[in-house]
Simulated scan of single mutants.
Amino acid sequence: MDRALRMAALGRGLTSPNPLVGAVVISPSGAVVGSGYHRRAGEPHAEVYALRAAGPAARGATLFSTLEPCCHTGRTGPCVDRIVEAGIARVVIGVEDPNPQVHGKGIQFLREHGIAVTVGVREAEAARLNLPFFIRVRYGRPFVMMKVALTRDECVAETLGVRSNITAEQATSDVHALRAEFDAVGVGSGTMLIDDPELTVRASPQTRPLTRVIFDSRLRVPCSAAM
Rank of each mutant, 00 (worst) to 15 (best):
S164F: 08
A171N: 08
E169P: 00
E181Y: 04
S189Q: 00
A171G: 03
S189H: 01
E169F: 04
A180K: 12
H176W: 09
T172P: 00
F182G: 01
N165L: 10
D174N: 07
V187E: 02
S173C: 05
T167I: 15
D174S: 06
A180S: 14
R179W: 04
V185H: 03
V162K: 11
A177N: 09
V175H: 08
A180R: 09
E169T: 12
G186I: 10
D183V: 12
A180Y: 13
G188K: 05
D174F: 03
L178P: 04
A180T: 12
T167M: 12
N165K: 05
A180M: 10
E181G: 11
M192T: 02
V175C: 14
R163W: 07
E169S: 05
T172N: 10
D174I: 08
M192L: 07
S189L: 00
G190R: 02
A180L: 10
A168S: 09
E169I: 05
R179E: 07
T167A: 13
V175F: 14
A180E: 11
E181P: 06
D174K: 02
S164R: 05
E169N: 03
V185M: 14
S173H: 11
Q170V: 09
G186E: 01
Q170Y: 04
G186R: 06
R163M: 05
V185P: 07
S164Q: 04
S164E: 05
Q170L: 09
A184Y: 15
R163S: 06
S189M: 01
T172S: 06
S173Q: 15
V185K: 08
T167W: 00
E181T: 15
V187S: 01
S164L: 05
E169K: 11
V187C: 15
A184Q: 12
A180N: 13
A177L: 15
S164P: 09
F182S: 02
G188A: 07
H176P: 01
H176N: 10
A168G: 08
D183L: 11
A184C: 14
R179A: 07
V175L: 13
G190M: 05
A184T: 14
S173F: 09
M192D: 00
F182M: 15
F182A: 07
R163I: 02
